[in-house]
Simulated scan of single mutants.
Amino acid sequence: MTLTRPRRRGAALAAALLSTALLLTACSGNDAPEGTIDNSPAAGNDAFPVTVTTTYGETTLYEKPERIVALGMSNLDILTSLGVTPVAFADDGYTVNGGSPDFSNAPWVDGKVSADLWDVGLADGEVNAEAIAAYDPDLLIVGTRDAEDGNMYETLSEIAPVYVSPSASEWQKDTTEIGQLTGKSTEAEEQIAAVEKAYEDAQSSLPGLQGRTYNIGALDAGEIWIEGPWTFLSDLGLVPADNQPAEDIQNMSMENVDQLQADVMVLVAYDDATTDTFKSDPRVASLPSSENGTLIYLPANFLGAAHRAGPLNRLWVKDQMVSYLEKTPLNQEGN
């Protein structure tokens, strides 16, 4: 499977599709499987109605949702961590063979959810409002890119209440708000606390890297994308280098590779050829991270992992990063 860089999805669906989606909403039956939400007293006592405010306005639910459709691996991650199973799901970044679902490159959810959920469909990356409406959902949880497609937010809002999740770097906020909307506020707090503690505990495995500077990003056809939203190294006790952006993604050409002076550098490439091209530049060998033995090349599946975040994902990323970093010479010096 080839992972592609997260991109803005295609143009908005035509007005005719909106009409079809609304018709399906009105006429759909109960053929689709029910989602799973524990409604027992032990599941929490969140009161409804509940209102959550996003950049697209307020999302109000008057009762606990039973038929959730989720778009995006991060949203599936969060729902799964809260013990909630949607009736359907899609993420075009994790498909093979023209659309068949593939969890092999999302090991944090592999085995925890059924591929049968992958039934909404994203034709060429575009949101399929017809398929969504057919599930007669009472809550849609979608990513920002899905909502940005022209009038897609308005189209989906005619089907069911829509919650638009923030960026991956705001996964705690996302988890908290999805917890509120699903009556799982307590579970959301517990998941966030567990992840934060796991990262704090992991710092003891990286004594030689505490306070060390880092750059982290992706290699792509002669360019280096320095990824500001990837903050998990900070959570492990490292410090962003001066040229590591705080939030945005900074595009750096290879002619400026000698500006990457961080103590630790972590890079992920789309393929081995891209990595080999980067390594062949003679300046790479003289970078501090090369000399420290802390220039780390991650496999391609990490690219999708880094761009999608939730409690399960963050724990998997933590384990991966520690496994690479703890055996570096610079870290061993701190033992």
Results as ranks from 00 to 15, higher is better:
S205C: 05
G310T: 02
P86R: 10
D146M: 01
D242R: 06
L3P: 01
T277A: 15
K173E: 12
E190T: 14
T155H: 05
L76H: 13
E189D: 14
D136G: 04
W225N: 09
T155G: 00
C27V: 09
T175D: 14
T274N: 09
M73P: 03
Y199P: 03
A160L: 09
A106F: 03
D110T: 14
E148K: 03
S167E: 12
M321G: 00
A160M: 09
I192E: 12
D319W: 00
N335E: 07
A269Y: 11
E326K: 15
E189I: 06
F89Q: 04
L82M: 04
P288Y: 04
F48L: 03
D136T: 07
A90M: 02
M252P: 06
A160C: 07
R212W: 01
L206C: 08
G222F: 11
P329C: 07
S157Y: 02
S289K: 00
A273N: 11
V268D: 05
P240E: 08
P86M: 04
A269V: 09
T155P: 01
G208R: 04
I178Q: 13
L238E: 00
T53Q: 02
G35V: 14
A12K: 11
T59H: 01
N105G: 09
V195L: 06
L71F: 13
A88V: 04
G93S: 07
S204M: 05
A32D: 15
G35N: 12
K318R: 13
T80F: 09
A26K: 13
C27K: 11
L238A: 01
L303S: 10
T294L: 05
N215D: 13
P245G: 12
M254F: 15
L3D: 03
R308N: 15
S234W: 00
R9F: 07
N292Q: 02
D174S: 14
A134N: 10
L260T: 14
N128G: 10
D258N: 14
A160Y: 10
G10E: 07
P101K: 15
L298N: 04
P282R: 11
D92Y: 12
N45V: 06
L122T: 13
